[in-house]
Design a protein around this nucleic acid. Sequence first.
DNA 1: CTGGGCTCCTGTCAGC
DNA 2: TGCTGACAGGAGCCCA
Length: 272
Amino acid sequence: MPELPEVEVTRRSLAGAIQGARVTGLRLGKPLRWPLGADPEALLGARVGEVQRRGKYLWLPLEDRGGLLMHLGMSGSLAFLGATPAAGPHDHFDLHTDRGLLRLTDPRRFGAVVWGAALEVSPVAGLLAGLGLEPFDERFDGAHLHARLRGRRVAIKQALLAGDIVVGAGNIYACEALFMAGIDPRLPAGRLSRPRADRLAVAVRAVLGQALAAGGTTLRDFRDAHGVAGSFQMQAQVYGREGQPCRRCGAAVRRIVQGARSTFFCPACQKR
DNA sequence: CTGGGCTCCTGTCAGC
DNA sequence: TGCTGACAGGAGCCCA
């Protein structure tokens, strides 16, 4: 579910509510992607700092006790709750604080909560190593994109998804950005011209910005930390619209498979 | 270094 | 109604 906009919407909705809270308890459900890597007892009493985001990861600093790196995987969401409802079958991590309960719900359990002494130290540093630029970083532009795509033979869609050039665009937004830029998702990445790289960089930013403004995309169950759903799915141009008319030209939107993921595009608007 | 395939896990939905 | 297979917002890891 969660691509950069959803993770950032989660961060924004959570940060103010939890900052300054003290950890009073911790409950682990079924195993997530990786073990926590810390003794829950050792985190009691720690004060929560300002929640940060890097790519699709969230970093919850625990002053003097390192912090927690969280990832929502494919089906995860975080809720900050005033009360303490009984844990459901998919609630696999609870961080109790004196201001409320931070709960990770994640049916597929591809998500993770990993303790680390600091962002710059293993294992957190290792997980963040190799991530591309943040899309809203001023260094991310057509020149950067073009340079990093040089020599790559994978399809441009897969190069965007890989996240080692620019982070944040997952399956929905990679499709949408390529549509906005008028680029065929099958184009070999290294063959993207410089002018088109400029357009793609702009499109990636624009799509992620629009999604952020819409509160993210709620296909099924995404909610921010206070339970609010996103609405970007209402303005998606191609994602999930196989067979329906392109909103720009009317041609039927196509669905293909790239790297075992669905890609949606308009065969008329998007060129090689 | 690059690319491709596999893997983790559960829920939902279409089709028979 | 029940079963089966495809598919779902991610990304680390291994091997060629």
